[in-house]
Design a protein around this nucleic acid. Structure first.
Length: 164
DNA sequence: GGCACGATGTGA
DNA sequence: CACATCGTGCCG
């Protein structure tokens, strides 16, 4: 199976996100199909952490696609994101679900992903890789979860993608 | 330094 | 529905 590398992610996050469905997320101990993702796109997207501008936390989102953006939420759960797009265009895909595990916090706990993965580069890492089984799966979209605070139009953008 | 608040999950 | 639990952004 071919490994996904930088160029795959260095495109508009809205194009990359649906294509991530069905890709295989691999660590030394696990291997699982991605079933659900969400797109966060640019400083103008008030649901995107980059809407607060460039900070130590969001710094990696300003790098070119292919890096991992990891952050802690509710003091308990590590969120796994893949940076997309070109440098200085802060975009990322949140991995929300893998086969057999729904929920972004559950999958990182299961895979053992934490802050130490921040900035890791897909294609160069030996702790985490993404493979392409070469299939395109039918999917549906919905608004993103848990971002009511962002308000319109962001709360209504159909930027959550799930395998049908 | 202090404070409010989450891109969540669990259990009553 | 309550709440655990802590890094981050923002204010002072």
């Amino acid at each position: 199976m071919l490994q996904l590398t930088a160029s795959f992610f260095q495109r508009d996050v809205l194009q990359v996100a649906p294509e991530l469905l069905g890709k295989v997320l691999a660590t030394p101990k696990h291997r699982a199909l991605i079933t659900e993702v969400e797109a966060y796109r640019g400083e103008e997207d008030l649901a995107c952490h980059a809407s607060k501008g460039r900070t130590p936390r969001t710094e990696i989102m300003y790098h070119e696609g292919g890096h991992l953006y990891i952050y802690l939420i509710y003091g308990m759960y590590w969120m796994l994101n893949i940076v997309c797009g070109q440098a200085d265009s802060p975009e990322a895909v949140l991995i929300r679900g893998i086969e057999g595990l729904n929920g972004p916090g559950k999958l990182t706990r299961y895979l053992g992903i934490d802050k130490s993965y921040y900035g890791e580069q897909l294609g160069f890492s030996d702790r985490i890789q993404l493979f392409d089984p070469g299939v395109c799966l039918p999917y549906r979209t919905t608004p993103r979860i848990g971002i009511d605070y962002a308000g319109e139009p962001w709360v209504s953008k159909p930027w959550r993608y799930l395998i049908k």
